[in-house]
């Protein structure tokens, strides 16, 4: 609240709210750094979880403390709840794809990989063996098709449809 506060209680609430927001923002900042510094997709996802869950929760708490007189406070409570429900969905889907695809995880940086060590029919894809990325790139299309995860995407060609997303620099 930018209006001058009347009582000490309000001042204290504002202060706590501001501290919560600052903490949330710092988490978001560190997460952005982690997004740049961590080595592969799966690791970066851990950094991404922070602003999406903890950071947003902190900021929502701070915002609720600031807006405490407005009925919209309860909406902020809902924001927190919705975020808790929806955030893992993306993380799980992306994590799954990243582990199966190439380039998603640097296997040389894995201490143990118990999913790769125990493949079964539910986890297709010979690419989960230990050979490294370069070898796989030269392998060509059958490999990629085999490792495509989605049932509906199997028959597609060699990844050209994702080129706009995938080909960076």
């Amino acid at each position: 609240m930018s209006t001058p506060t009347q009582s000490t209680v309000e001042l204290v609430l504002d202060t706590i709210g501001t501290v919560a927001i600052v903490l949330g923002v710092l988490l978001a900042l560190v997460a952005s750094v982690g997004l740049l510094s961590l080595p592969d997709v799966l690791s970066r996802m851990h950094a991404a979880t922070k602003p999406q869950v903890v950071g947003l929760l902190l900021i929502v708490i701070g915002g609720a403390l600031h807006l405490r007189t407005s009925p919209d406070v309860w909406m902020l409570v809902l924001v927190g709840a919705f975020q808790l429900v929806t955030a893992p969905v993306t993380a799980h889907v992306v994590g799954r794809l990243a582990h199966r695809g190439e380039g998603g995880v640097r296997r040389d940086l894995l201490y143990v990989d118990e999913l790769t060590d125990r493949p079964d029919e539910a986890d297709p894809g010979p690419d989960d063996q230990e050979d490294d990325d370069e070898a796989r790139d030269e392998d060509g299309s059958p490999h990629r098709n085999g490792a495509a995860v989605g049932r509906s995407r199997r028959r597609r060609g060699d990844g050209s449809d994702g080129a706009s997303l995938d080909s960076g620099e």
Binding site: V41, L56, G104
Partner: peptide, 28 residues
Amino acid sequence: RGPTGLDRLIALDVLVAEFLCGLVAYAA
């Protein structure tokens, strides 16, 4: 920078989350 599509996806997700954070902080 990517390099993979999933990287960009995660980045977009974080961007959305930070946008939400910004809106709430602005409201505060």
